[in-house]
Amino acid sequence: MQALEQEIKKLVIETLNLEDLKPEDIDPAAPLFVEGLGLDSIDALELGLALQKAYGVALASDSKENRRHFASVRALADFVSAHRKS
C-alpha cells in the first residue's frame, strides 16, 4: 500500500507539474484540495484522467463519491487498489 501511495504521489506531482515538491513533501493523509496542496477542480479533472490512464480506474459521476476519493493521497490509493484493473 505504501508503494502505491508513493506511486500516486509521483503521479500527482508529474501530472500537475507541482514544481518545488518532492514525493516526501506530501503527507499522504493531508487534504489535496484548497488547504494542503491547494489543488482545484481542474486539477481534479486532470488527475482523474491520469489515474484512468495509469490504473484503468474510472471515476464515478457521483461528485460526492469523488470528493471522498480525492480527499488525500491515501484515499486515492485506497480507491485505486480497490478498483484497479491490472
Partner: peptide, 16 residues
C-alpha cells in the same frame, strides 16, 4: 498563495 487567497479565487492563485 495564502496571502493572495483573501483577494483571489483558489483556481487563479499562482502555481509557479
Amino acid at each position: 498563495r495564502k496571502h493572495l487567497s483573501s483577494q483571489f479565487e483558489p483556481s487563479v492563485l499562482p502555481r509557479r
